[in-house]
Write a protein that binds this DNA or RNA. Structure first.
Lengths: 209, 209, 209, 209
DNA sequence: CATTAAACGAGACGGTACGTCTCGTCTTTGC
DNA sequence: GCAAAGACGAGACGTACCGTCTCGTTTAATG
């Protein structure tokens, strides 16, 4: 593609740098990972890294390759509660993956004093996911699954906030049961559904769990 | 008293180090702040700092002097909604204070790879506030202001989660109107709905008991 | 040539470091001179020094630039006594120069627990001078100026030993008259020459009385 | 005795400090030995050391206890050559003892920028030995064993200079054969004796070939 | 004896330097 | 003409000692 080689960039080197960055991040953590070490491991010149990425955080964000992945697309089976549960447990699983957890907090912290990283983080990682969730909630509202006066943004933050809180502040494991309980609890108050208890039937087996 | 000077610690030096740490954190940010610079500004020897604090984060936590302050005591006027609004807007104001915001995210990030800092953060900063909120919610439940099957910990996290989300993830200003809208929205649904969720969790650790 | 810049070394920096080292050595002495201070004065990074020299002593030895200088070449006018007197008074002058005296003793002391310095000292400073003297003595023996059974090494050490003794042990000034008296006395006994200098000195202080 | 306890000095502590100093000197060498480490090992306070000794060198000199020992007394059997050989081989043995060699050079180097150490070194260690030798040589001259115009000080330095030269400059082992050869050679020319020594040594390394 | 003054161990303190590490820039060399 | 290699100035890291300065606790001598 034209753009990719517009700057005569060596794709092999790029890949080696991404690999080295990811490997190092897993091994020593985001903070302890140095550009020097990435270059060393990738057998790349330091200048090559400084030429193409403004900071360790942005490099890592690129390396994660989150731009094009589909984790931002929200499922829409028609059942809002099920869709939210499924998407959010997936998100929780990713957030609490041992390799990724320290990365995200590192990136979030870095964004507080690195506007470039902040922008990339929002446009590539956070933004698309917010948009996907927002759209799903709007659709739900239009279908009548949610009250017509629902503030989708506020609801979205009420949904995801506690996950981030657990992940970032108390560092407790984001187990699936917690996520489901939270979503049921929050949505349960909001939607007009008869549901005496909060046990859910597994759509696959049909057996109560 | 004997204990205080048991280690023959110089209180003037301690104060100078706290002052220097706080000033530097404000000026250059948590990450960019070095122990070397703190010592320089406090006219203290580096060893003096290393002698008394295990890390930059713990030093800063001590410097914030959050241990004994009363921001952890929850108001109880009998009106839960008003009390929550007042406490949470206060918390939001503190969190979004320009001097403090980068400190907290730095500490939270640091806690992810520094167990000692994590423990201090939880025991001195996060824990007491969680406990205060938990107690206020329990009192409210016992008074009948909340449904008898309310899970205080989950509710607490639903209350504070979005604040941290805004502060840490999207870095939007934590304006008072947002906080009030969120609290009204969440509490409003709760007091007007019957439902059930009967698991209880420990307010400190959050783990089910 | 290629070799010199094989390591892409910055010659300006090298010169600045040599200058700083020599200046500092003169000002504060060998022991009190720190690598940190050399770097500071030379406006060089500490790492640059540690990269190229294994120790303060070796750096100073290089800075003295004794490798290529010609003080190691022994004069040969055909008159052994005159040649020795001239070379040794020169050596004595150098050894007792106020800037150099503390350097040499520092290097000699350092060589006792730094094999690398010991080797450099011998190969660059001591060795060539020993060789030059040895050759001159051998030539003299071959010419019949010295007895055919002369041990040049022993004689050399008998010649220079007292100079070092005065310089290193009693720290008396290595005045020219002493050197000449010693050489005359030693050689006079060895070759068939009239000689005589019968000044006596105090055994404690060594000063002439 | 009154004087000794005038300052109410603890003799046990003093002994422990001496022992620690000597042990450390043997183990890590003079340069690497710190007052901090001496205090640590002697279980003494640092202040106690700083109270009684002006420097590491003087402390060590005291610890060596050279003041009163009898190595300064010169033998007088009537045979000058034998007496010199015996005394000097003894001195050489002491100088080249592995534990002492680095101490002496350290003290000599220290004396170059520590007048107090220089004075103590001369009055306690070097001076008495010079005096003893001087007296023996004077006696020999008065007995006619040496020419009447002999300069005892010069001769003394010609005798001992090469020993120090080997010990300090070339760091070759001060083997007995070398000492005897040197004394025989020097004295042999001076007194009326038949002698001869035809061994040759390499001028660079000094080792016999 | 009780007082008292010093020596003592312990170790905090402000400093300096150590030798290593990484930063981000700059230069040289090879492909 | 970009990329690797790495030198460079800069400066922080955490440690070791420096020499000074309290602290309480012996310990010896004086009163």
């Amino acid at each position: 593609m034209v753009w990719a080689n517009q700057y005569r960039r060596n794709e092999d080197t790029k890949k080696a740098i991404y690999d080295a960055a990811l490997a190092l991040c897993r091994e020593v953590g985001y903070e302890a990972m140095s550009i020097e070490a990435i270059a060393r491991r990738a057998k790349a010149g330091k200048q090559t890294i400084y030429r193409w990425w403004p900071s360790k955080g942005v490099l890592l964000l690129d390396a994660l390759g989150v731009v094009g992945n589909d984790s931002a697309t929200f499922p829409d089976t028609g059942d809002l509660l099920a869709d939210l549960s499924s998407q959010m447990t997936g998100a929780a699983r990713i957030m609490s993956a041992p390799q990724l957890a320290p990365v995200l907090i590192g990136l979030l912290a870095g964004a507080h004093h690195d506007p470039a990283l902040a922008e990339r983080l929002m446009s590539d990682l956070i933004g698309p996911r917010r948009k996907g969730c927002f759209n799903r909630l709007r659709t739900a509202r239009e279908r009548g699954e949610l009250p017509p006066d629902t503030d989708e943004v506020l609801l979205m933050e009420q949904l995801y906030g506690p996950l981030y809180y657990r992940y970032l502040v108390t560092r407790e494991p984001l187990v699936e049961s917690y996520v489901r309980r939270h979503v049921n609890d929050l949505l349960g108050r909001l939607v007009a559904t008869t549901h005496g208890n909060h046990q859910h039937t597994d759509p696959q087996t049909g057996s109560a769990r």
